[in-house]
Simulated assay, not measured.
Amino acid sequence: MTRAVFLAHTAAPSGAELATLRLLSALRDRPGAPFEVELLVTEDGPMVERVRARGIPVTVQRNTFDSRSMTIADSGAGGLLAGGVALLKLGWTLGGVLRERRADVLVAESTKALLMGAVAAGRARIPLVWQVHDLVSREYFGRVLAVVVRLLGWLLARGVIANSRATLGSLFTWRRAAVVAYPGVEPVTAPDDDRAPQRAPRDTVVAVVGRLCPWKGQDVLLRALAAARHRPRTVYIVGGTFFGEESYRDELVALSDELALPVEFVGHVEDPTAYMRAADIFVHCSVLAEPFGQVVVEGMQAGCAVIAARAGGPLEIIRPGVDGFLVDGGDAAALARILDQLIADPELRTRLAGSARIRAREFGIDATAAAVAEVLTAVTAGSARRSAVS
Rank of each mutant, 00 (worst) to 15 (best):
R385V: 06
W215H: 14
A309N: 12
R349L: 06
T167G: 03
R199S: 10
A86F: 09
L252M: 02
L24C: 04
E36A: 12
R150Y: 13
W92M: 11
L315F: 06
L87S: 13
Q294P: 09
V160Y: 01
V266Y: 04
Q131L: 09
P127F: 04
I72S: 11
L261A: 04
D250P: 00
T377W: 00
A308L: 05
T173E: 07
Y275F: 15
L27M: 10
A378K: 08
G32I: 03
L348Y: 00
A274N: 08
C213Q: 15
V372K: 02
E264Q: 14
D193V: 11
L27W: 05
G244V: 08
A369C: 10
H9C: 03
A384H: 12
D328H: 10
T350E: 14
A124T: 01
V208E: 08
A336S: 13
A121V: 08
R385C: 06
A190T: 14
V283P: 06
A311H: 09
E347R: 15
P57F: 06
A356M: 06
G312P: 04
H268R: 11
T2Q: 10
S69N: 15
W130N: 08
R223A: 07
A378W: 07
P214T: 09
L376I: 10
P183A: 04
R3K: 12
L23N: 02
E186S: 14
L348G: 07
P183N: 08
T204K: 03
D29S: 15
Q61S: 13
G299S: 11
V375R: 00
A333I: 03
Y140W: 13
G321K: 05
A388L: 14
L94E: 04
A11N: 05
A4E: 12
V208M: 14
R50Y: 05
H133D: 08
G267K: 09
D194Y: 12
G153I: 03
G382C: 01
V206C: 08
G79A: 05
M1Q: 10
R359P: 10
R50I: 11
L81D: 10
L352H: 03
P201R: 05
G96R: 14
A334P: 04
Y140G: 02
R101C: 07
V287K: 13
A120K: 00
V372F: 07
L21I: 00
T273R: 15
A190P: 04
I317K: 01
A367I: 02
R337N: 11
S387H: 11
V105K: 00
H133I: 06
P31G: 11
D194T: 12
D340W: 05
A353H: 00
A381Q: 13
L39T: 03
P127D: 06
R28K: 14
V132G: 00
N163C: 15
Y275D: 03
M300L: 14
R52N: 12
V253R: 12
Y275N: 08
T189W: 04
V160N: 01
S25K: 14
G122C: 05
T111C: 06
R62S: 14
K216S: 06
H133Q: 11
L21S: 00
V179C: 04
